[in-house]
């Protein structure tokens, strides 16, 4: 179906885009419709992604192909189902067992990731050689001083007075530069998205209609 030479998918796409953009005028039923549709479809999308990328290859397919060879997969399946026991008061406590295993494992995994991946790696990349030469040495010093001063700013076990206060103040300047940079970067990313939408409306939707 190509009304006015434009595929129906493009019409839907354009209609929903305009519904959202209509909020710039004021809150209205078209925006509320698109907002609700977006919330529902996003969740439906994640259900599809989880089914296709996680449950099908790791659980359903192995069990369908060789049930007895993969019978142990019934354990995580049972744990997953146990999470829903919270809705049955008499066995609600069993849901906590599944939750405990789930939380416990990911806490252990993330603990090592945080210690090894974040703290050690970021510290290693901060404490670099000052023999880089030329202006790079200066940049390395700036990064090192920046990281140190920001960490001092987040150190709350002592009052920020005297030398500690001065270093902490320097940390604030580094943080302000970072927040400003993040803000500028976010704005530009959003404007880039907006340009993409307008480009779609003009080039993909309107232009074929006008030329048809």
């Amino acid at each position: 179906m190509h009304p006015f030479g434009v595929p129906i998918g493009v019409w839907i796409n354009a209609f929903l885009t305009l519904c959202i953009l209509s909020f710039l005028y004021k809150d209205n039923p078209f925006f509320r419709f698109a907002e609700s549709l977006f919330a529902g479809m996003s969740l439906g999308y994640y259900i599809g992604i989880v089914t296709e990328n996680t449950l099908r290859p790791n659980l359903f397919r192995p069990l369908a192909q060789n049930f007895w060879g993969n019978v142990l997969l019934l354990i995580p399946m049972a744990l997953g189902i146990m999470l829903y026991f919270r809705y049955i008061p008499s066995v609600a406590w069993l849901a906590r067992i599944a939750l405990a295993v789930y939380i416990g494992y990911y806490v252990g995994v993330y603990l090592m990731q945080k210690l090894h991946g974040d703290i050690l790696f970021q510290s290693r990349d901060t404490i670099v050689s000052l023999r880089a030469g030329g202006v790079d040495t200066l940049w390395n010093i700036i990064v090192m001083v920046g990281v140190f001063s920001v960490l001092i700013y987040f150190y709350f076990s002592a009052e920020h007075k005297g030398a500690l206060g001065k270093v902490s103040k320097l940390g604030i300047y580094f943080l302000m530069i970072s927040f400003g940079a993040s803000f500028g970067y976010t704005i530009m990313a959003r404007i880039s998205l907006l340009m993409g939408r307008f480009s779609f409306l003009v080039n993909t939707w309107l232009r074929p209609i006008i030329s048809s």
């Binding site: 252990g108 090192m144 920046g146 990281v147 580094f174 530069i177």
Partner: peptide
């Protein structure tokens, strides 16, 4: 982006990771 911003972000990441790790130890 690559010098003062990276330094501040690194400080935030290290600080947040220390906080998260201590919370994770408390959970375990």
């Amino acid at each position: 982006m690559t010098k003062p911003n990276a330094a501040a972000q690194r400080g935030i990441i290290i600080g947040a990771a220390l906080g998260a790790a201590s919370m994770q130890i408390r959970v375990i």
